[in-house]
Simulated assay, not measured.
Amino acid sequence: MKRLASWRENLLGYLFLMPSMLLFGIFLFYPLIRSVYLSFHLTDPRGRVAAFVGFDNYAGLFASPVFWNSIKVTFLYALYTVPVGLALGLATAALAHSKLRGMRVFQFIFSMPVAMSVSTSSVIWMILFHPTMGMLNYGLDLLGLPPVQWLTDAGSSLLSVSMMTVWMNSGLIFIVLLSGLQGIPDDLIESARVDGAGPIRTFIRIVLPLLSPTVFFLAVLSVMNALQSFGQIHILTKGGPAGSTDVFVYSIYREAFVNYQFGTGSALSLVLFVLILALTAIQFLFLEKKVHYQ
């Protein structure tokens, strides 16, 4: 009877899991298997398999300067957005966590970007970046500085998109870090103050180690999001000028849905999958050792 009851309980559990597994199979596992299959083939513009080419798609990628430019741009984009985004989120969360009067207003302001879609945020910043009517160049003009071609100059376009991305992601990072700060017991902070520790020393020695699991989670999430960024690139620059903002996902989009090279696009997507997997593993192997779990 116990074995029968255990069997029924397991069957019931699998039945509850079935809808989720079905959705995962349709929207995750099948596209992944299909991408692996297409990466070894040439396709016609309708996506139908035309010929088996083995590893030729991958060999063509690694021999292409466009591919290596996308790798370089993507890693620069991640370097510009992830550390700055975490530092900005940490600063605003620490400020909003203080007991000063009116902090609720600042908490609302700092968390506002999380409610905006990528398209809305991109349109707002496109107006700000406008070379003649944008507020950014207007501010530079007030300071007596020359205008900047934010999105049309190869030297500033990636930094401009990165700046917009940092602002766009700041709401989520702020909310998560503020929640982490609110979870730290006040008794520890008060004990440090009684022992004579100043606010900076208290933050570095006590608050930051206790907040390290939250920071680590956001670091992994931010790197993954940076490697998969597409919407703001597509709206603001379309990979230009001169490939300066041609991030990896935009290369996949261009190959698959502009050039109709679904085999090459699938190969690119699998390379991106391996890159994200490798970087996530590296973060867990090296950065997690510095995380302080209570």
Score class of each variant (00 low, 15 high):
residue 238 K to H: 10
residue 263 G to S: 06
residue 25 G to D: 11
residue 268 L to G: 07
residue 75 F to M: 09
residue 167 W to V: 02
residue 43 T to F: 00
residue 70 S to R: 03
residue 289 K to Q: 10
residue 272 L to C: 07
residue 143 L to H: 11
residue 244 S to D: 06
residue 139 G to K: 02
residue 7 W to P: 04
residue 77 Y to L: 01
residue 245 T to F: 02
residue 270 L to S: 05
residue 75 F to T: 09
residue 49 V to K: 10
residue 155 G to I: 03
residue 91 A to G: 13
residue 131 P to T: 10
residue 132 T to I: 12
residue 254 R to V: 12
residue 193 R to C: 05
residue 147 P to G: 02
residue 250 Y to P: 00
residue 28 L to C: 12
residue 108 F to H: 04
residue 275 L to M: 15
residue 149 Q to R: 15
residue 235 I to V: 12
residue 95 L to D: 07
residue 282 I to V: 15
residue 221 L to V: 10
residue 162 S to L: 03
residue 112 M to T: 14
residue 55 F to E: 08
residue 255 E to T: 12
residue 203 F to S: 05
residue 51 A to T: 01
residue 144 G to E: 01
residue 16 F to S: 03
residue 211 L to W: 09
residue 210 L to E: 11
residue 178 L to D: 04
residue 26 I to Q: 09
residue 223 V to L: 06
residue 225 N to F: 01
residue 103 M to I: 14
residue 167 W to H: 08
residue 6 S to D: 13
residue 104 R to P: 08
residue 282 I to E: 03
residue 98 S to N: 09
residue 284 F to C: 02
residue 97 H to P: 00
residue 231 G to K: 03
residue 241 P to E: 12
residue 259 N to K: 09
residue 29 F to A: 15
residue 253 Y to R: 01
residue 89 G to T: 08
residue 242 A to C: 11
residue 243 G to V: 08
residue 261 Q to I: 07
residue 114 V to F: 07
residue 27 F to M: 07
residue 57 N to P: 04
residue 222 S to H: 07
residue 2 K to G: 11
residue 242 A to Y: 14
residue 281 A to Y: 12
residue 142 L to C: 01
residue 118 V to H: 14
residue 255 E to K: 08
residue 190 E to Q: 14
residue 70 S to G: 10
residue 73 V to Q: 09
residue 201 R to S: 13
residue 252 I to R: 06
residue 93 A to E: 00
residue 64 S to Y: 00
residue 145 L to P: 13
residue 238 K to P: 05
residue 40 F to E: 10
residue 191 S to A: 13
residue 50 A to Q: 00
residue 136 L to M: 11
residue 12 L to W: 09
residue 219 A to I: 10
residue 173 I to G: 08
residue 109 I to N: 06
residue 113 P to L: 07
residue 248 F to S: 10
residue 183 G to M: 07
residue 193 R to D: 00
residue 238 K to I: 07
residue 167 W to D: 04
residue 56 D to Q: 15
residue 152 T to M: 09
residue 127 I to D: 13
residue 218 L to H: 12
residue 284 F to W: 02
residue 167 W to S: 05
residue 9 E to T: 15
residue 121 S to Y: 03
residue 36 V to K: 09
residue 129 F to R: 05
residue 210 L to W: 08
residue 172 L to G: 12
residue 22 L to P: 02
residue 8 R to H: 03
residue 172 L to F: 15
residue 126 M to V: 03
residue 18 M to V: 14
residue 215 V to F: 15
residue 213 P to D: 04
residue 83 P to R: 14
residue 267 A to T: 05
residue 73 V to F: 07
residue 38 L to S: 06
residue 53 V to M: 01
residue 137 N to W: 05
residue 98 S to R: 08
residue 67 F to H: 13
residue 92 T to R: 12
residue 22 L to A: 02
residue 1 M to K: 11
residue 135 M to D: 11
residue 12 L to C: 10
residue 108 F to I: 14
residue 241 P to I: 15
residue 8 R to P: 03
residue 137 N to E: 03
residue 75 F to A: 05
residue 106 F to I: 14
residue 42 L to E: 08
residue 140 L to V: 06
residue 53 V to F: 02
residue 10 N to F: 11
residue 48 R to E: 10
residue 80 Y to N: 04
residue 188 L to G: 10
residue 4 L to D: 08
residue 21 M to P: 00
residue 259 N to E: 08
residue 1 M to V: 14
residue 130 H to C: 04
residue 123 V to A: 15
residue 65 P to L: 04
residue 272 L to E: 04
residue 105 V to I: 14
residue 154 A to I: 09
residue 150 W to A: 00
residue 74 T to D: 06
residue 44 D to C: 01
